[in-house]
């Protein structure tokens, strides 16, 4: 938790974070070019590890077998391609399909890593701040759900414990059927308790004037000028990347014939824009760390 709190990018306005992740994941989904996937992967891994520390490295290491599995599985179902490496079950296992599998697997892992960063940066309170104005009722509902779940998990443990005490719960060596029926019984009891409790919550809400005034949110966050600058920079970069994609600058075909657009000349600028866009959180993190070092050494 501490690491995430120290992250400069997490301190920005929620809109900045949301725009970045929509861009990183959305643009990533449109580009199958190996160089772009590699670049996105590098930045995703760096930022993920900055956020999560050694735990992050573990997740990254765990994604390697998934990457390999998806890579080698693709030629088993996709038989297009020019260069046949071998035959599996009488079907051609091609080089092109293998590279294609690598690209898809890489893209998937990169998307999941960015989603992991999203989970660390865009906490539920930020989500609420961002959407509380647009969909106030749904946001409030979400807030209630997020509060109820841990509450209910505690209650489930209490209910299960109470049932065990009076000899009605499922024993540790119970059959699957007994376990399933027991947990459904607990769920049913939980439902009664939660619905009754809900009435009290609702009355309390009404008593305190729910719906009479616009809701305020937990995070008191104003758009700072630095947030606006960051948003505009990201918008310009994203527009440049979208132009590049629309112009076919990131086109990459794998099967049946491999055709990968080289990153040269005018495309280089687009690639640079992509890298700068994705590096923003990492750059902010490092800038903050360096500033902290300098200001500390000045003491």
């Amino acid at each position: 938790m501490k690491k995430e709190e120290n992250d400069a990018f997490s301190q920005c306005h929620p809109a900045v974070g949301f725009f970045f992740f929509v861009g990183a994941i959305g643009l990533g989904a449109m580009i199958l070019h190996p160089l772009y996937i590699l670049a996105s992967g590098l930045f995703a891994v760096t930022y993920y590890c900055l956020l999560r520390g050694t735990r992050g490295l573990k997740t990254v290491a765990l994604s390697v077998p998934v990457f390999l599995l998806l890579t080698f599985a693709n030629p088993l179902v996709n038989h297009d391609g020019q260069r046949v490496l071998t035959y599996v079950f009488g079907r051609p296992y091609t080089y092109e399909a293998l590279v294609y599998g690598m690209a898809i697997a890489g893209m998937l892992i990169v998307m999941l890593l960015w989603a992991g960063c999203y989970n660390a940066v865009m906490t539920s309170d930020k989500f609420m701040t961002l959407f509380g104005g647009v969909i106030p009722t749904i946001s409030l509902l979400l807030l209630m759900v997020l509060r109820l779940v841990p509450n209910m998990i505690r209650k489930v443990a209490q209910l299960a414990g109470a049932r065990k005490c009076i000899g009605r719960g499922a024993a540790d060596n119970a059959t699957k059927k007994e376990k399933a029926l027991d947990s459904l019984n607990v769920l049913s009891a939980l439902m009664t308790w939660a619905l009754e409790g809900g009435v009290i919550t609702a009355d309390s809400m009404k008593a305190r004037g729910y719906g009479t005034e616009k809701r305020s949110s937990f995070r008191m966050q104003k758009m700072k000028s630095s947030d606006i600058i960051l948003l505009s920079v990201m918008a310009v970069l994203a527009a440049a990347i979208v132009r590049l994609i629309a112009g076919g600058g990131t086109a990459a075909d794998y099967t049946p014939i491999m055709r990968i657009t080289p990153v040269t000349g005018e495309h280089l600028a687009g690639f640079a824009a992509y890298c700068v866009f994705l590096s923003l959180p990492t750059v902010l993190y490092i800038k903050e760390a360096v500033q902290w070092r300098i200001s500390r050494s000045g003491i």
């Binding site: 009722t137 409030l140 509902l141 209630m144 759900v145 109820l148 779940v149 209910m152 998990i153 489930v156 769920l187 939980l190 439902m191 939660a194 619905l195 409790g197 809900g198 009435v199 919550t201 609702a202 009355d203 809400m205 009404k206 729910y210 719906g211």
Partner: peptide, 18 residues
């Protein structure tokens, strides 16, 4: 929606997670 409806919906949605 009134508070009572809201809370009921929230309880049901939380039960989905549970």
């Amino acid at each position: 929606p009134r508070p009572r409806e809201l809370v009921t919906v929230a309880v049901m949605a939380a039960l989905v997670t549970i």
